[in-house]
Design a protein around this nucleic acid. Sequence first.
DNA 1: CAGTAATGTTAAACTAGTTTAACATGATTT
DNA 2: AAATCATGTTAAACTAGTTTAACATTACTG
Lengths: 194, 194
Amino acid sequence: MKIQPLLDYMSKYISLTDHEVTLLKSKLVYRKYLKGQFILQQGDVCKYACFVVSGCTKTFHVDEQGLEHIIMFSIEDWWTSDMGSFITQTPADFNVQCLENTELIMFSYDTIEELYRQIPKLERFFRQIIERAFVASQKRIIRSFSLSAKERFLYFRNQYPKIEQRIPQYMIASYLGITKEFLSKIKSQLIIEQ
Amino acid sequence: MKIQPLLDYMSKYISLTDHEVTLLKSKLVYRKYLKGQFILQQGDVCKYACFVVSGCTKTFHVDEQGLEHIIMFSIEDWWTSDMGSFITQTPADFNVQCLENTELIMFSYDTIEELYRQIPKLERFFRQIIERAFVASQKRIIRSFSLSAKERFLYFRNQYPKIEQRIPQYMIASYLGITKEFLSKIKSQLIIEQ
DNA sequence: CAGTAATGTTAAACTAGTTTAACATGATTT
DNA sequence: AAATCATGTTAAACTAGTTTAACATTACTG
């Protein structure tokens, strides 16, 4: 289990004793997925909150018309899960699929409450992680209201330069809430403008 | 201080001893605002996370073109704050304004860390509150992608029947991300369809 | 390495939602 | 009671983004 990336990440929020690290390790699941595999399928109950050690995933929702809407991408040092399904143990709104071979450290719903009891500091850690995720989600709502598709694309390109080259363009369009044709148009406009 | 509504609300998540309630009480701020008053202004640092005891607030963002976008309404038993500004103590993206005379119980940034230390259970309480807020925010993103303006309006009307009658229509339009003119059109279409 | 599937581009016709402006209504102030 | 202001409606012209379809390109797969 490559646990070091997670420990480095956690050390930014809390400090764990050796004994706590051992305890934590014993409750975690380490798993490798291949490109294309689903970590979670819409309608299933989400059993794991996952930390991405390596690789890339997309989280997406399929609406009633069968259209795919990408909510987020997750790469190294990010989290991926359907938080709503995880915390309430009800059917997921999202699919999570690997866009590359991906290694995950998974916190299972069945053991996380026990972990909180044994290591109360984790309660603090997860509160802070979720605060950040919530803030990012709210900022995204602001952008969807107040920016045009072109401005949203420029923001995306700036914020995730690494992801832009790793994934197909139609997925970026889906993340931006536009069609791949319109993204194509925006990009050719941007080239002309220069 | 009308603290009972907050205690009732908290009892759904954690149970506090009498001593803890006394401690908590001593750290809270209770305040009344008049209709129209601002609890927070965009650009200021948010010092308080507020529980609404009575009244109604709107949380909105003013974009670079000066257009107002309503992010949420908060009524009795809801929270209101700019979480991003509160946790990072950086300038707020949002304004929070009272739509009615409003009574709040306010958790100050300066005392909340101390409270977490003295009553570790609060860490758990806020983790759960923020989890829920995050999930609500993500569901709103799904709706903005996968529903038409008409469907979003029907969803709003269904989810917040009490709020619909308490506030002006142009604020509902702003919440839905459309113009008041288009909301007017949607409503007249809905009447014709019946 | 040929054939098929997945991805990306261009362009024309279309539609959801905006903008502007004129007018109606009710509430608040003088 | 008149005047002003905030809110709400209607309608016409407009625009951002979609849909459809044809074609180009890249990348798997047998």
